[in-house]
Every structure is written in C-alpha cells, then in structure tokens.
Design a protein around this nucleic acid. Structure first.
Lengths: 258, 258
DNA sequence: GGGTCGTTTCGGTCCCGACCGAACCGTGCC
DNA sequence: GGCACGGTTCGGTCGGGACCGAAACGACCC
C-alpha cells in the first residue's frame, strides 16, 4: 500500500504499534519517566521538565490519557495526571531497562554528557547534583522503595531468608510470618496465574542492582511512609529516612544506612 | 525547541523513545509478532505477511537489527532474521498483552473484522481458518508451548503441585524432583535476582488463560520437540501432538487432549 | 554463461505529527 | 470586578520517515 493511500493516524489495526507510538516520542517518554515516581503531576510541571510549551504538553497528555496509559484528575484549574496502574509502571520500567542495558547503537548516540555509562544525564548544576545524590540515597520507584535504601532492604530480606530467589522470586514461609508480625498485609492471591506478582525484581539504575517491587514492594513502601520511617523530600521522588526509620530498619532487618 | 531546530532522527537521547519508535510502525510490529514464534524468517516471507514491498521490508529489518531487537544470519541469498533474545520476546509479549487487554479507544479502532473480541483478525479464507484452528490447538510461543496444549500442561503442573502460584510462580521441590526424573534440565540459577525467570506466566490469546514461559517453559518445549512428543506443522508456529506424545502427556501429567 | 530469484540501494513522493505562539477560557485571589 | 495564572484550542510550519518502483547485486541452478 503506497503511503498516500493510508488513512490518517493509521496503525492498520496493530494494537502493538499504536501503544508503542505513544511512547515513541521523546516528550511523551519524558512524561512517563517523570511519572514513574508514582505521584500525580500537573500539566505545567511536566511541560517544564520536558522543556516544551504548555500547549504542546496539553496535547501529549490528551493522547496518553486516551491511550489509557495515564489517568487524570481535575482539581480547580489544575490537571493532575498519574500512571493509570502498576501495570503501566511495570511496562515502562521494563522498556527502559531493556533500552538502557542493551548496548545497541543508541549507546553511542547518548554518549554526550552521560555519567559513566549509567544512561543518566550528568548534572548541569549544583541544585541538580544534590537532587541526584538524594535520589541515589533513597527514592520511590512507582510504588516501592529504590536507591541504596531499596537495594539494602532487598538484600536484607534475601539474606534473612524472608524472600528467596530459588526457582523464582517468592516470599518464604518465614517471610509471611515476619510480615504478619509487623502487621504488614499483602493482598490476597487468586488461585491461577496472572495479576500482579507478589515479588518482582526491578533494576535500580543508580545502584546497578535489583530492588524489590510487586505487591510486597508496594506494601513495604506504604508501611514505611505510614509509620514515618521515611518521608518525602520536596516534590520529587526523593525520600529521607527519619531517625525512627533508621532505628526500625536496624532492629527489624539489620539494615545499616551510611 | 521548535521542530525545525531538531536534528535528524533525534530522540533527544531518550533510549525509551528510541526503542518504542522501533515498534511504533505497524509493519515493524507485524514483523515482530510473526517472529514471536521463535523461528528464523527470511526477509521475503516477512514482506509478504506484512504486505509491503521487499525493498520496504529490507529497510525495516535493518533498523530492527541496528536497534538490537533482531539478529540476522546470512545464508546464501537469504537473510534470515530472528528475535535477538528471550528478553525481546518477553518485551513484545508484554506490550502486546497490555495493548490488547486494555480497553482504551484502540478497541473501537480495531473493531472491523476481529473475531469476538479476541483482538485477532477473522480468517479471510478456508486455508487461513484451518491454520488458525491448528494454532489454537497447539503452537509455540517464542520458545515454549501455547494454545490448548500449553494451557493444559500449565494446569497439570499446577494441579499436581509441581509448580505453585502461592506467593509468586515457582517450581516446587516436587517439581524439581519430577524434572530430574524426566531428565529435563533447568539452567542453573545465579544467587541474586535478575536474569531470566524460571517460570513466567504468559497470557494465551486463543485461550484467554495463562500458560507457562520462562526457563521452565523453554525446557519443556525443547524436551517435547527432542522426544518427538510434538512436531512442527509446515513453516508456521503450529504444532501437532504425535501419538507417542499423547501417550507421554497422559502418563506423565494426566493431560487428556481432545 | 544465462536465467531466476531473493535482497539491497536509490530516487522520489507524500503525509503524519511535533512544535510554537496567539487567542481563549475558567478558576481562584485580591 | 479585575487581574493572574493554569490549561486548552487553533492555525501554521516543517522535517522525518514510510512507501513504492526501478535498477543493481549476487547466489544458485541449469
């Protein structure tokens, strides 16, 4: 079929192509990456981080929402958007991990100004640098913990046999007992496969190691925030471990934070 | 940045956007879907299934290979291509599942001529219809078993307690023993998370149920082909269960095929 | 050697869509 | 009411890229 016979916005009925097209634009991709912190952002904030005019951002958001990747919530004159579901977050993470770990010719294209092969842009200012170091220490990754904190917690759970990687990641019996003892609840499991995994490994860019996501990761992160073990710094994804949090992590998991 | 200031093929250093762009074209998406059967296809075959000129197909293939989604293998005057790794297959599957299960506005766009909400095009000919029914019975899904056969095997493994979905999909101790008894080997596991999962659930479009992928799925499929329990029909992804295969499945797993 | 066939390269066409600025709209604040 | 501000709509510009056909290339088979 010659190009001039195609109908407008025609993905020829390929749902795969239609979905990929949503993420194929650098601006929309930047939006999704920013939203990976699991919080709701306003249209203006996203326009600023992506460096486009508000009008442009508005159009992109409408497309992402129509494509069911994002959901919106209007509040006064603000339009808040967030990722539509944990499934979307997982999808975008998987794609990002693949794109950044696969050598490919993209590697040389990204070469200018990326920090020691991490795929992350080098900081442009002091403000940017301190933000990055705070995020490297502890941050959210959609709905679970990441950064050195996230990796340390994952290591502790594995070392203490609360989670195992023998034959696939899973919570052990001791792990279930420990969770009950801490009054941390996991959502019930349907009999058959499918649905959200209980534990999922999620590659941590700053640490180049895996931390834990899935329902367990989300439950731990929720508990940590509820119990004020960690708190948000500013409006980004960075977290601070509170004094009580440091104590709790040491006593319950033997995690020593630098 | 106005459009006329952008550099050519500029994804502004977004690896995510660059990767998604590879899949955002319906022709390239069709190539990847076809290659999901795990076999090597020639450039001409792919051009035919996607309905484009050979010259067009050639250019698309070059881009997919440059992007590390595909690998090529030249043989005489043929150019064979296949998916570059199980990771690529998983990625494309995940995207496809998400795209087809998310209601979204794509649903109505695909409406014309799709069979009862399966997201699959209705057969256009008798030949097409018999092919589809053969694939619904048994087929490969990249490197593991799918179709009614794949789902039946998955159910049998779960029912017999060789695989469990308690706290995430995993092979049980009994499962490991069973595999040893059948002389089916799983690749060794590295200590820390990451790498290919041992068992993975993979949504089956024809059955609307999950079958088993991952290293276990691949090992089972390899064993089934090696031992002539199943054999390929023609050049597609369809499989036929041999008489010995039917017997083996019944005796070893209690699987009754219609 | 000559024909066939799978593949690639090249030239040319055309349109999608990303972008901006300006105008507009509605909310919230003074 | 009036102003400020976040968001949206609209019109216009421009380039990338998807497509084809023709021609070149090279492997394979008489």
């Amino acid at each position: 079929m010659p190009d001039h016979e195609r109908t407008p916005a025609d993905h020829r009925g390929s749902p795969l192509a239609a979905l990929a097209a949503l993420l194929a634009d650098p601006t929309r991709a930047a939006f999704c990456s920013a939203l990976l912190d699991g919080r709701a952002w306003t249209a203006g904030e996203l326009a600023r981080v992506a460096g486009v005019a508000p009008s442009t951002a508005s159009e992109h958001l409408s497309r992402l929402i129509a494509g069911a990747l994002l959901t919106e919530e209007r509040q006064g004159r603000h339009r808040y958007v967030r990722l539509a579901s944990p499934a979307v977050a997982t999808l975008i993470e998987d794609l990002t991990v693949f794109a950044e770990t696969t050598g490919g010719p993209t590697a040389e294209a990204t070469a200018g100004g990326s920090a020691a092969g991490t795929g992350r842009p080098a900081p442009r200012s002091l403000r940017e640098a301190t933000r990055q170091s705070a995020e490297a220490r502890a941050r959210t990754c959609y709905d679970h913990l990441a950064g050195r904190l996230g990796v340390a917690v994952a290591d502790a759970l594995l070392d203490r046999g609360l989670v195992t990687d023998r034959a696939g990641l899973a919570v052990t019996d001791r792990g279930h007992a420990w969770l009950s003892a801490q009054a941390i609840e996991l959502p019930p499991r349907s009999g058959r496969p499918g649905g959200r995994p209980v534990v999922r490994s999620c590659l941590d860019w700053t640490e180049r190691r895996s931390h834990l996501g899935g329902a367990l990761g989300a439950a731990l992160c929720r508990a940590a925030l509820d119990r004020a073990w960690v708190e948000r710094i500013g409006s980004g994804r960075a977290l601070r471990v509170t004094p009580e949090g440091g104590r709790a992590l040491r006593e319950l998991l033997g995690v020593e934070l630098p």
